[in-house]
Amino acid sequence: MTIYSGKTIQDAVEQGLTALSLTQDQVEVTVIQQPKNGFLGFGRKLAQVELAKKSNTQTETITDKPSQKPVYDAHTDSEETENTIDVEEVSQKLANYLNDVLEAMGFSFKLKLDLKSRHSIYIDIDTDQESRLIGRHGRTINALQNLSQIFINRLGANNVNVELDTANYRSRRSESLVQLADKTARNAIANGKPVYLNPMPAFERKQIHNALADNDHVMTYSTGKEPHRVIVVAPK
């Protein structure tokens, strides 16, 4: 058992691993000290980890997981280094999958991948048949988005969200949702009765809830079962 230090925990572990010439699967990592950046270089502390070789060498059980993960943040803590899913890899597989599906649907298109964070993937589909891609009331693009979500959940990335977009559809839609929210709120107040909106997917309902969250005169809630769940805007 030896102690190794480095700027981040990942660094420290890697140093130890090269010194011992082992892979990450073969050792038990104990974090002794979390790294601190300090203030203007004062009080900076290096990360210290202790590596112990595992007694049982059943490495083949975890060989399908990548042992080296890219460091996303200098403040990577021990919990994050244990994260098993690589978002970049998942998004690449998703892009290939979408490529196949969209091609089979007869689109000519270009995909643009954007990893907004470690928990969300944004994909812009550039095509000249955007109305067919979006479908009536966004049905087709939402179904494709659902399918993408199902696909990456199948890969084991449970806490990653996917958003599909084409020709700024999502931002245009969110503008009109805010307008709809305002109009409905005025209607509800004027008539003194709750107003039921049309069925919407969860992420669109959320935008309406958010838009009316700090409105003092109405309250919003959802009723019904998916996929017919609707928002109700009611005067307080």
Partner: peptide, 18 residues
């Protein structure tokens, strides 16, 4: 098929859109 048929419903939406 998925929970409450959500997965197959999604696939149908895509297939029928062609």
């Amino acid at each position: 098929i998925g929970k409450h048929g959500h997965v197959i419903q999604t696939i149908r939406t895509i297939v029928y859109s062609v």
